[in-house]
Simulated scan of single mutants.
Amino acid sequence: MHTKRNTKALPLFVISDIHGYRDEYHTALREAGLSGPDGAWTGADARLWVLGDYVDRGPDGIGVIDDLRRLQGEAAAAGGEVGCLLGNHEIQLMGADRFGREPLPDADDGLYGAWLRWGGVERDIRRLDADHRAWLWSLPAAARVDDVLLLHADTTNYLRYGSSIGEVCTQVRSAMRNADAVGWLRLNHTLAARLSFRDDPEGSVARMLTALGGARIAHGHSPLSDYFGVPLDGIAGPHWYADDRVVAVDGGAYLGGRVLVADLGRKMEDPT
């Protein structure tokens, strides 16, 4: 007789905004017990979700993508899971790769020039291959694991694309597939908005959880030092807010902060 595995009993971790800081990412996973000295998966049946922004700003965004793709296979073989979301910097990189310097109304150098101004690293785009592109296109815009709604950005703008996780993911991918350069830029701006949950913790959090499900939200995108008043030298872990219904996990690695891993399973068991 087969019994259904209770996934809620399995550890759940999130990490976000690695931004090419490959060494810092490896250190964070080792400290969380999810990888060994060689970077291989040691998390057994744990779930790790990475909330986007693998590339840009830092030294080796493509190396981070390669590490995550390998880790996904290793975790699956061990009974665990590594899931990855689409971040706005992936959208920016993909737009630069797809449309190049095709002029925009307000930018003669097109999405490529805009991507560079947003922190694009030309070494990353030169190393993109067909497998990287396919992986990037496969990334969902949002996910829900157990009772946690996983997003890259702290914005209610996801609801412009649907009122369920499936609709949001399908419509974002459709918008990407059908967009011209101007439409791609509009998509980027929509999904790069921030601070909905900080500035309207009652209305925005309730809207998102009612529409997309879950009891809590985990997001990256907005560095703790810039948007939540945590000094860079005081960042020790993720920031819980909105009555502990939302956790922000962007430790601002590219600003001199940290790549953070949040143990959500432990928080669910001990909310203090």
Score class of each variant (00 low, 15 high):
R5G: 05
K8H: 11
F13C: 04
V14K: 05
I15L: 09
S16M: 02
R22E: 08
D23A: 15
A28S: 11
E31G: 13
G36N: 09
P37R: 15
R47M: 14
R47H: 15
L51N: 01
L51D: 04
D53H: 02
D60K: 02
D60C: 03
D60P: 08
I62A: 03
I65G: 06
R70T: 15
R70I: 10
Q72R: 14
E74S: 03
H89T: 02
H89M: 01
E90D: 00
Q92M: 13
L93H: 00
F99M: 09
E102Y: 04
D106K: 00
A107D: 07
D108L: 09
D108K: 11
Y112N: 07
W118L: 15
G119T: 02
V121N: 03
D129M: 08
A130T: 11
H132A: 01
S138H: 04
L139K: 12
P140R: 13
P140Y: 10
A141V: 10
H152I: 12
H152F: 10
A153Y: 09
N157F: 03
Y161G: 05
Y161D: 01
V168L: 11
T170A: 15
A179G: 09
A179E: 10
D180M: 12
A181N: 06
V182L: 13
V182P: 00
L187W: 03
N188M: 08
L191A: 02
A193D: 14
F197H: 10
F197E: 00
F197M: 12
D199G: 00
P201D: 02
S204Y: 00
S204R: 06
M208V: 15
M208N: 05
T210Q: 15
A211V: 12
I217M: 07
P223I: 02
S225I: 10
S225A: 15
Y227R: 10
G229C: 11
I235S: 05
A242T: 03
D244H: 11
D250N: 07
G251Y: 07
D263H: 12
K267F: 12
K267D: 00
M268Y: 07
